[in-house]
Amino acid sequence: MRRGWFLPIAAALGFSFLYAPIVSLVIFSFNESSLVTVWSGFSTKWYGELFRDPQLLGAAWLSLQIAALSASIALVLGTLAAIALVRFRRFRGRTLFAGMVSAPLVMPDVITGLSLLLLFVAMEGFLGWPQGRGMLTIVIAHATFCTAYVCVVVQSRLSDFDRSLEEAAMDLGASPVRTFFDITLPIIAPALVSGWLLGFTLSLDDLVIASFVSGPGSSTLPMVIFSKVRLGVSPDVNALASIIIGIVALGVLAATIIQLRTKPKNRQV
C-alpha cells in the first residue's frame, strides 16, 4: 500500500496534543513567579513549598496507604476472579459473575461513589459497621473497582499460557494448590505486578469515588488538589504534578522495558 504523508503528520499532531499541556506544566513548575504564565526565571522554590505544606503531605501519605492497601486486596480478588473466568468454563451464575467483574470498568464514577456511600450508611444503620467513613471505606471502594482492572490484566495472561505445564505438575503428583504456587504463579507474575501497579495508580488518582465515601479528616491527595485547583492555578500544584508525572513516566518506562525483555515479540495487549 502506498504510504502517504497523512498518517505520520496526523500521528505527530496527535502526540503533540497529548504531550504539549503536560510539558508546559512541567516547564512552568520551575517558574519563579507566582503568576503562573509569566516566565520570570528558573527556580525550584515551589518544590520546597510543597514539602512545607502539612495538609498536602498528610493527604499524600493517606493516599499512598490507601492505594497500596486497595491494590493489594484487588490483586488477590482480581486474580481469583480471573482464574475462575478463564479456568472454569461453566458454572452457575457465570454470566452474572463475568458481568459484575467487568461492569466497574465502565461504571460512571459518580454512580459507584454514590451507591457505595449509600451502602455504607445503610450497613451502619443495620449492622453498626463500618462506623463512620474514612480510610477503611475508601479502601473498600477502591479495591472494588481495582479488582476489575486486575482481573482484565491477569485474565489475558492466564488465557495465553501453556496449560500442559500445569498438567505435567499435577501428573507428577503435585496438588492443585501446590501447582498453583509453584507453576502458575511464577508464570503470571508479570501480569500480577502490572495489575497491582495499575490498581495503585488508579486508586491514587481517584477523586470522585473518594469524595463520596470519605469522612471528615480523611481527605485524599486528589481531593486536596481539586479544592486548590478549583480556586485557580496554583504554582505548588504544578510542582506536585511534575513530581507525580516524573514518577509515573519512570515507572511506565521500566515496566515497558521489562515487558519487552521478557515477553515474546508478537504479544501485544
Partner: peptide
C-alpha cells in the same frame, strides 16, 4: 497512567 485530574488541570493552564 498519569493522574487524570492533573491532566485536566494541565489543560486549564493551556
Amino acid at each position: 497512567f498519569t493522574s487524570f485530574l492533573l491532566r485536566v488541570y494541565a489543560l486549564t493552564g493551556f
